[in-house]
Simulated scan of single mutants.
Amino acid sequence: MYRYILPLLLFVILLGSCDHPKQAVIASAPLISEHFTDDVNREVTLAQVPQKVISLAPNITEMIYAIGGEDKLIARSQVCDYPEAVLYLPEVSAYPSIDLPAIARMEPDLVLASSEIHNPIIHDYFDRLNLNLFFQSYETFDDIYRNIKVLGEMLHITEAANQLVDSLSHMEQLISDSTANQIKYKTVIIMGVEPIIVAGGGSFLNEMLAKAGGKNAFANVEERYPEITAEQLVKAAPEYLLFPTKNDQMYAELIARYPDLHTLLPAALNKHVFVVEPSITVRPGPRIIEGLVALVRLLHPRIDLTDLFPE
């Protein structure tokens, strides 16, 4: 697993975890009314600062911790695994099906969901129980920054949220600048091998790859994660193959199904086949900078990021 010490980001995260006396006073005081519009265009009205929050998506959980709002979390989904402290929270099933009765029994004042993972139709159930359900969408880096700020506003941790966004966007710009004049190697990001699924032009990974100085061979495909044939993969002639997975045998599984690829793909011939940590690349959360750094070090190893991001 790729792990980097990001000094500026770490400072912001630690800052968000510190006690904020003014925020504590605000959090304990009722609000007249605050209105928020989520990413499926539903308006959610909060009568007070949420004190019992359930996160149904791992990236949202990470964001809450990163801005110092973890004391408001009462439960998390079964796939929320970072930071380690979150594992001590009660878990509720959130994918592929949501344990709605279990959530209702916890009486949360705010439930956070991802429109990429969860069907917005579930809001009918929450509405009937008078529970606040808020959807967030994460298709771009700007979506991440915007929604971190929204979480900060909802939980009344705006200062820490704004500082985190400033830190992330600043580091993103430094990385983009470092790769701007580099050769953009043609790359395919493979998400699955049976069938072959790749990251298309509509995916978050497409933007991440571009910022890391790569060129997505399937950027012209609007679908986020299209299915392709082995013939299409050969025609794309990728110089790099990236596998964002915990399964370090995925390339071997691909070759077992399509043996000729090992001698037909430039990436294979040049040994430019890499497994990358999915939680910092596929998961659009506060560790996206770690994901960018990991990709830069694979695609452009001569770029020295040591001063900014020690290994």
Results as ranks from 00 to 15, higher is better:
Ala256Val: 01
Leu56Asp: 05
Glu107Trp: 04
Tyr258Asp: 02
Asp143Ser: 13
Glu116Asn: 12
Asn162Pro: 00
Asp143Ile: 03
Glu70Asp: 15
Pro284Cys: 08
Thr306Leu: 00
Pro310Val: 02
Asn119Gln: 15
Phe135Arg: 11
Pro90His: 09
Glu223Ile: 10
Met191Val: 10
Leu9Thr: 11
Ile98Leu: 15
Pro50Thr: 03
Leu129Met: 15
Leu89Tyr: 11
Ser203Cys: 09
Ala210Leu: 04
Phe309Ala: 05
Ala210Pro: 00
Glu107Pro: 00
Ser77Lys: 09
Leu241Gly: 11
Thr281Ala: 10
Ile74Pro: 13
Leu46Arg: 10
Leu87Gly: 15
Ala237Ile: 02
Ile280Lys: 08
Val44Ala: 11
Ile32Ala: 13
Ala24Asp: 13
Asn247Gln: 14
Asn270Val: 00
Asn41Ile: 02
Pro101Val: 03
Glu222Lys: 14
Glu311Cys: 00
Tyr185Glu: 09
Gly285Asn: 10
Lys186Gly: 10
Val86Met: 10
Arg42Ala: 09
Ser169Ala: 12
Ser97His: 12
Ala267Gly: 05
Ile183Gly: 03
Asp304Arg: 07
Ser93Lys: 15
Asp38Phe: 01
Leu261Val: 02
Pro30Tyr: 02
Leu8Arg: 14
Glu239Pro: 00
Leu209Pro: 00
Gly285His: 05
Tyr65Met: 10
Ala268Cys: 15
Lys52Thr: 01
Tyr251Gln: 01
Val49Gln: 07
Glu223Tyr: 10
Ile289Trp: 02
Leu295Ala: 06
Thr45Met: 11
His262Cys: 01
Asp19Ala: 15
Tyr125Leu: 08
Ile175Val: 13
Glu207Met: 06
His272Asn: 15
Gly16Asp: 04
Ala267Gln: 01
Pro195Cys: 12
Ala75Tyr: 03
Lys235Glu: 12
Gly152Leu: 04
Ile67Asn: 09
Leu131Pro: 09
Met1Ile: 06
Ala217Arg: 02
Ala237Arg: 12
Met250His: 06
Ile255Lys: 12
Thr61Tyr: 07
Tyr2Ser: 15
Thr263Glu: 11
Gly69Ser: 14
Ala237Phe: 00
Ile148Asn: 06
Phe204Cys: 04
Tyr2Trp: 07
Asp166Ile: 05
Lys52Ile: 02
Ser178Gln: 13
His35Gln: 15
Val198Phe: 07
Ile117Thr: 15
Ile121Met: 11
Ile32Cys: 00
Ser176Tyr: 08
Val49Lys: 06
Leu305Val: 04
Val12Gly: 08
Asn130Val: 05
